[in-house]
Design a protein around this nucleic acid. Structure first.
Length: 352
DNA sequence: AAGTCGTGGAT
DNA sequence: TATCCAAGACT
């Protein structure tokens, strides 16, 4: 009987993946070659966004834009509306620009290096699409992979400073022959390991295919890694917005500037957002149509952004017929609820 | 290169 | 309620 030899990392991880891989809406289960359009779309949707949030939106997006040519041919406003509620709206603008670039080229580039040059595709997404769709031997380093590698190596340097080292170490996995034979599966195996075993809070080390070689687990510090630099507190800001409706149930919306926060999305017209609350006398001059009988609705809508928190007051008025001023448009209430970003849906909720 | 850029679920 | 953080990109 030979001495038990630890399986090389690639073989052990892939064997675990073949038994425990997750079934996901954007992941093929028939073993066929993934469609680059679907892989790319899912990777962009999944940027800083949970699998649970992407799930129902992925097929819905594909139903509306079945091919990258269809996406490229669509107006940007249609893409923004389809993206409403998903957040990080620059992704939708870049997605559209990328679709037009790829459609003009005829097909997706097949290497991470070439993919990296497209809008909205950074180092991670380039490697993920190259590995999953084209089996290029690269390792996409997302938050899961950073966490797995930080624990494997017991890396004490806090993120984000440690990211280059962790990413390089992850790429080093491709020296393993088993990993190099299945780059797409290897990448997704790392994702699944991070999502189901090597979790942020209480990792299930007893079930981990790499428990034998994990330095953090040996030292008992796995739950403390990766270390991170503390985030700054989020300031509180204030706004006042205006709900103008007509007797047919339409309401007035305004398109935000094409870049920056919520760039290109629709909103309820309102004041700028500032550090101090708006009094009624300060807010009313910002109404889309001054001089109407604006009435303050009770309550305050709150919404958390990445780097500040927002409290909004809402004023309402009614006119017989809505005639949108320049730069604004009228939508019926059901449609508005569907195309507005979440922060604006909170205001609609305030109106009942 | 640190700040900007959304949202919802888990804890 | 407060905090974390998720298949990050861009400036």
């Amino acid at each position: 009987m030979p001495l038990p030899v630890p399986l090389p990392p690639g073989t052990a991880l892939l064997a675990w993946y073949d038994r425990h891989r997750r079934t996901l809406p954007f992941r093929r289960s028939d073993g066929g070659r993934p469609d680059p359009y679907r892989v790319w779309l899912s990777e962009v949707m999944l940027q800083q966004t949970t699998v649970a949030a992407v799930g129902p939106r992925f097929e819905r997006f594909l139903a509306r834009f079945p091919t990258i040519e269809a996406l490229a041919a669509a107006p940007e406003a249609a893409v923004m509306e389809e993206w409403a509620g998903l957040g990080y709206y620059a992704r939708a603008r870049n997605l559209h620009a990328c679709a037009r670039a790829v459609a003009a080229m005829g097909s997706f580039p097949r290497t991470a290096e070439a993919l990296r040059a497209l809008p909205g595709i950074g180092a991670y997404t380039a490697a993920a699409v190259a590995a999953i769709a084209f089996d290029e031997p690269v390792v996409p380093a997302d938050g899961n992979v950073e966490r797995v590698v930080a624990r494997l190596l017991a890396e004490e340097t806090p993120l984000p400073a440690a990211k280059p080292r962790l990413s390089a170490a992850a790429q080093g996995f491709m020296a393993d022959e088993a990993a190099r034979a299945r780059p797409g599966d290897f990448a997704q195996a790392l994702f699944d390991l991070g999502a189901t075993i090597c979790t942020p809070k209480a990792p299930a080390c007893a079930l981990c295919p790499w428990r034998g070689e994990c330095l953090a687990q040996q030292r008992g510090i796995q739950a403390d890694l990766p270390r991170k630099v503390p985030k700054r507190a989020r300031p509180l800001r204030h706004g006042a917005h205006f709900l103008l409706t007509d007797t047919a149930g339409h309401l007035l919306l305004r398109r935000r500037p094409p870049r920056g926060l919520l760039g290109g999305m629709l909103e309820l017209p309102g004041t700028p957002w500032r550090d101090e609350a708006w009094t009624e006398a300060e807010a009313l001059p910002h109404a889309p149509i001054p001089g109407l009988a604006w009435r303050r609705l009770p309550g305050i809508a709150r919404h958390g952004f990445t780097h500040f928190e927002l409290e909004m007051r809402l004023y309402a008025a009614t006119v017989p017929h809505l005639d949108p001023p320049e730069g604004m448009e009228a939508r019926d209430r059901m449609e508005a609820a569907a195309v507005l970003p979440t922060v604006m849906r909170r205001l609609l909720a305030l109106a009942g």
